[in-house]
Amino acid sequence: MSTLVWPPIAADELIREEDASLARELQWLLGSLQETLQSLKSGLEECAELLAPKEPGSTLVLSSMRSENLKGFITRVGTRIVKGDVHLRLPSLPPPKGQTSYKLSLSTSPTAPTIALEQLTTTRTLINACLDVVDATRWTGDSKNANFISGQIRLLHDNIQEAKTALKGWTQEQKPWHEEHVDVNAFSPPLPANVSFHLSISEAAVLLHVRTLEPAHPHTGTSTPLALAAGASSPSYSGLSLRERLSTALGGGRLAFHDEAHEIFMYEGQEVRVRDKVRVESQDPSLMAVMAKLGALERNVALSKRALDIVMGKETDEG
Rank of each mutant, 00 (worst) to 15 (best):
A186M: 05
T108C: 10
T114E: 00
T137C: 08
A52Q: 11
S39E: 13
A296S: 10
S32V: 12
A10C: 11
E263M: 11
D284S: 13
A136E: 06
I81N: 01
P110Y: 06
N185A: 11
K83A: 14
T222I: 02
F148L: 13
E281W: 02
L156N: 03
S202Q: 13
H258L: 12
Q34E: 11
T108S: 11
K305V: 06
R279D: 01
I201Y: 00
T171N: 05
E49Q: 15
A112N: 04
V195L: 07
L4D: 13
E315W: 13
R89C: 07
E18S: 10
S105L: 01
M312C: 03
L213Q: 01
H209G: 13
Q174F: 00
P176V: 11
A193P: 10
G221M: 04
Q161G: 03
M1A: 14
A261I: 06
N145A: 07
T3W: 15
T121W: 00
V134W: 05
A163L: 01
R24F: 13
S282W: 02
W139N: 04
R24I: 07
V61D: 05
F73C: 01
E203N: 15
L226K: 02
Q119S: 05
P190W: 11
I153W: 03
T75N: 05
C47P: 05
A204P: 11
A232T: 04
G98C: 02
S42Q: 10
E244L: 07
Q270C: 03
S202D: 01
L22N: 09
I201P: 00
S282C: 07
D132V: 14
A48C: 07
E49R: 14
E318W: 10
S223T: 10
S58C: 08
S32G: 14
S304I: 05
S42R: 15
R76F: 01
D284A: 08
S234Q: 15
P8L: 03
G231F: 05
R273H: 05
D132R: 15
L199H: 00
L246P: 00
S101Y: 09
R243M: 06
T137R: 08
T222P: 08
T220G: 07
H87R: 11
D132A: 13
D259N: 04
F265K: 04
F197V: 00
S21Q: 14
G72V: 02
L255K: 08
S92V: 13
V133N: 13
L51K: 00
F197P: 00
R279E: 08
G251I: 03
L294P: 01
L287Q: 01
A166V: 00
N300M: 09
E49L: 14
M291D: 02
S200V: 00
K305F: 12
G151Y: 12
